[in-house]
Design a protein around this nucleic acid. Structure first.
Lengths: 337, 337
DNA sequence: CTGTTAGCGCTTTCAT
DNA sequence: ATGAAAGCGCTAACAG
């Protein structure tokens, strides 16, 4: 019922080996023979079985990608970068969602490895010792994508979260702000959370501004937590003149909360964030934010992985991509300056 | 170097068959033996080779999902629904992006089939005869997800795009509007485009309102095209009192364009759309929109696929999920009513 | 409850 | 340029 390479061989009057050569574009086949084989393939509607091929050749031309949350626009963008480069090098990708849960992440890595992927891209999230342990059992290369491990033992591609955050807050300071609040991500998250918080603190410190605990609220990256945090700030006796949000989405929540309270952005309160998601251009006022090159993170990490899979030498297996401040309309000098 | 089932067998002093049985949770193994095998597995760090297993058993416990655009929030949501149900039934999924391009869609379907997926979910986009032809070569079940084929020959789960659109426009009419413009998607797209346009026309017709060509602009589903279309409407001598956008994103572009022109929504112009994406709650005013159950579309289609894969009988292989009007703040009666 | 033995459909030496 | 034959690592009768 399924037509195999053997059927094609018989139909074309050649051996399996020859059919295999034709299918794999091996040049050592007489054009005439090649033609015969192609015709037989056509006639029979033969479709190579990638599973059998994978078993025989020990290569699947497939790379596994574990993504923390497919519904997250940032990760989706990274995935696009991965896809594009994977296509270019003729790799297929298996995208597996891991729900940002450690147990599932590890399970998914193991499943992918069982499926004999030729390489693995591990995206986002915290990389614990348990992760490292799972990674170590692999005999195919793995690169971290949009995350890094503390130890620095794995190949990885990421941006400088701390620096991006530092730049955003510094911009506020340059505009003359001193009362700067932050809507942070969870501090357990080393990249989007902790690092950005550290950048905020460092910028303050450098400008000689004393850090105030009540100027920091921890959010969950979502819109709602942006509005909640901002509500809190508005109730403070000396409310901030500027708000730095760890993500665009929280920043937009913040802007709307401000506006709903009758304040105008940026005249009354400035808002800045990091991400530069598409939504940043879909608010009024347009959001000033630090752009992270998500697509590039995907592309570069996939490119790195191809090198590793081909056992090419790589000069630098831990790359940090540059970020950039995108000036739009949500930041201005504080009132009276 | 790679440890195989044979190594485990030797280490545990049993046969390959027994190891296979414990790995596959076959009850016909003495607990003691089972234990021995588990220990050997542990000691050797054995990881079953899914490729070999797939070849031998002719089952991969993997289903292929072709997604038109992974960066599209709607599709991502569908994917989540698929994922959740797939997990529940212990299927892995291979997510393949197809860039909304027909050639790539067909290529991707073939690749997935070569990889011997046990079933296929084809998401979004137009289903042409060429698609049908590719689907026909498959000997595993395929279900259309968030789309249908005109012919009605394939299993599918979708919503009633025409009806959703009709309901949105009818809401506007009930509020007293008669001058209703539409920002449509491309008319070549049968679901999000053409069907919604038809719904608009039918609602108008039913209310005895004459259709005006200059009240319809074709957009590309994106924010910017919402802005552009609305600019056009604003230049009309008798500008509409309400705007119906085929997607939330275009609706938000429309709202912002209106606001930038000094108009207020919904007092001066009402705006309604269909989608109910998360963004609908991230604008001012909050967007009134018809909700499509994207997650459910994914979940239901995956569930349907599992039945098909198990050759269970299904009563109805073409399901239409209900939509629902979500009243928020972007619609009001026209001025002077 | 356990072992033996054929394959699954293909790639890959090794000959010729 | 082509063919023969030996696996790849596993499952699935079948036998016992």
């Amino acid at each position: 019922m399924t037509v195999t390479i053997y059927d094609v061989a018989r139909e074309a009057g050649v051996s399996m080996a020859t059919v295999s050569r034709v299918v794999n574009n091996n040049p050592n086949v007489k054009p005439q023979t090649r033609k015969k084989v192609y015709e037989a393939i056509e006639r029979l509607g033969y479709r190579p079985n990638a599973v059998a091929r994978g078993l025989a050749s020990k290569k699947t031309t497939t790379v596994g990608v574990v993504i923390p949350d497919i519904a997250n626009a940032n990760f989706a963008e990274v995935a696009r970068g991965i896809e594009d480069i994977a296509n270019m090098y003729h790799y297929n990708i298996i995208l597996s969602n891991a729900d940002k849960r450690k147990d599932k992440e590890i399970r998914v890595v193991n499943t992918l490895l069982e499926k004999q992927v030729d390489g693995l891209l591990f995206m986002g999230g915290v990389v614990t010792d348990e992760h490292l342990q799972a990674f170590n059992t692999s005999n195919v290369p793995i690169v971290l994508c949009a995350t890094t491990d503390e130890k620095g033992t794995m190949p990885s591609v990421d941006i400088d979260h701390e620096g991006a955050s530092f730049d955003a807050v510094t911009k506020l300071i340059e505009e003359g702000h001193r009362d700067i609040a932050m809507i942070s991500g969870t501090l357990q998250d080393p990249a989007g959370g902790y690092a950005r918080f550290q950048g905020y603190k460092r910028a303050l410190e450098k400008a000689g501004i004393t850090y105030r605990e009540d100027y920091v609220r921890v959010g969950n990256y979502r819109y709602e937590s942006g509005v909640e945090a901002t509500e809190y700030f508005l109730h403070l006796s000396d409310r901030p003149t500027a708000i730095f949000a760890a993500t665009d989405e929280m920043a937009i929540g913040s802007i709307h909360c401000l506006q709903d309270a009758g304040l105008t952005v940026p005249e009354d309160v400035s808002v800045i964030s990091v991400d530069n998601s598409r939504m940043a251009s879909m608010v009024r006022p347009l959001l000033t934010t630090v752009a992270q090159p998500m697509y590039d993170i995907g592309a570069v990490s996939m490119r790195l992985l191809t090198k590793l899979m081909k056992k090419e030498s790589v000069e630098n297996a831990r790359v940090t991509l540059p970020h950039e401040l995108i000036m739009r309309r949500s930041v201005a000098a504080p009132r009276g300056k």
